[in-house]
Nucleic acid binder design. Sequence first.
DNA 1: CTTAGGG
DNA 2: CCCTAAG
Length: 670
Amino acid sequence: MLKRLDYGFNGYQVPFIPRAARSARRRGPVQKKAEDIKMCAFDVLATVAGKLLLEGEALHTNSGKDQVLKAEDVVMGELHCEGNAPKSDHCGNLEMPPSSLELGLQVAGGHSALKEDTSPQHDVSLAPDPVITLANCLQKYTSLSGTALHGDKSELCNHPEKSDGLSPVRIDASVEQLGRGELLLGNGHMCDSDDAKFPGEKSPALASMDGSIQHALGKEQCPYASCSPSKGNNIEIVSRYDDENSSGCTQPSTMKNTRSPARIGDRRIRKLFASKYWRVSPKVKDGDFSDTELRCVYRSRKNGYKRQKSQKIYPFKKRKFFRCSSLSSCDGVIGCKGAYNSSDMSSGKSSTCFGAVGHGVNGSSSFVAGQSTPFPSGKSHAKLRIKSFRVPELFIDMPETATIGSLKRTVMETITALLGGGLRVGVLLQGRKIRDDSRTLLQLGICHEGKVQSLGFTLEPSPSYADPCVFSEDNSCLPSADALEPTRCPPASTIHQGSFQLSADHLVAHGSSLIESDHDSTPFPSEMSVEKGTVDSKALVALPEEPPQALSIVPAHQISKQSEIAQRRIRRPFSVAEVEALVQAVEKLGTGRWRDVKLRAFDNVKHRTYVDLKDKWKTLVHTARISPQQRRGEPVPQELLERVLTAHAYWSQHQAKQQLKQQSDPCRLL
DNA sequence: CTTAGGG
DNA sequence: CCCTAAG
């Protein structure tokens, strides 16, 4: 059987405390570029992730100062970068501690049946912030690690005058395990300062992911509840966040508890968590799903749409409800780490989530920006913390004969494939993804100290590595986006608020290999183009549903702010493949039946609602009527546009006829 | 929830 | 894309 596991894979936390460069404002051209940040962060993260997943078992750090990490130390250790620091002690000690991950399995509903690891406390403490220049750090790290980065990373932090003084960066990683399966990258201090310790927790050497799974199963709706109050640094953070933001993002768990499964809330939740599938058993008129929620998990073409409907996976339509979109996106699971305040949780404020950990959005990890020490030179030091990395859903085969061990392996492989494929970093400002890598911090208005915190990063699967076969949806999306709309919509930049379900959504693991799951999802857009003719009209464009917003992380503060500001869904230009699918569906179904069109051609593409399709059709018609010179964005083949006009004309006429008929019919009846 | 349209 | 009126 194919089972979809929504396992929260929380993960890497990298404290990020950017401080807007004061000098930046005066300096005129800002030298820091979002792109640089992305690149650097990406590199580091990717490396970390890779190590984490692929490397050895023993955890250790080479940094002279840092002690050897104990296995007990949780998952990821620290990413400690000191860009400016003249100290070079740690130069060369960029080695990431190899760590191993172990999967824990839990039976749905069973709290600990298969669980191997007891859930530890989730306290994630924020280590004292070392002052770091992110860029420098990353850069250094990169250079040391031999990874080639493109672009001028140095720009980010290096001002001409200071760039020289940079000393090798030290990046120490320690692994800490979070009971919930979260991987945290703490800063180097953790080891020394105990910040990273989780009181009362026996931390197995290995990180377990059980927590996530559990969530997936919907068992622990509110992990937080079990979470112990944040301690140490965490508290600090939490309080800070909480203070500023109380609009919290809605946390699934919280919401559930506090709110009735109302429409929007429900929707949002679902979107956010794969686990949603388990949580609510939608009433289906047909009764198909009346049974267990688990059914929802199994994808059947038939039910697909209904499920969607019932689950309300559609993107939030109303901003009103989208408070703290980024928050909403944040994964409850992730968030739950120690940071949570039980009180908040009870209140149902999502803010909690953020505060605590970062704000991992589904599937992604987030970084939180914190305050860093002022940087006179206009550079800013940043402490990067990847708070979480969550892979929302996986599809795996679960033969009845499968052993727990085999399941673990399967999940591990799936995850490894995901992470191992590469990660990329996205930069968020006020919760919005900054697509233009060339923008400077100055231009973005974040050079001021106070605004630095508005900067966030996301960790997402790297498009370049994403294998369509492997990632049917989100991930696939990335690649497609690149391929199809290189100019306009760099995949990396796509982000959005809150609800990303990370790509893992449709990961499927068959045995050891990942295969696209079910969904009748069609091959991939890119493939479609290859075999256009053969594509079933019904086929759909299996695009990733959610942008890899994954780890959106936004400083809690911002989050709160964001929450107030209605979030708009991320713009996701239709690819030619999608247009093709749309045209094909409309040709067959006609206009006015958007729901059917959606089902036919975009079922399983969650981020495209029928309203979106309708709107797209509207714009397509318009596009077809204007001169090519006036068109923008990825050019749509003329052939398609002609089909649009033809179909539009045909169906318009058809509709007219229908109306006449209706008008006439009554008369006849009378 | 769907449609249909305006913004 | 968002927002809404209507059905």
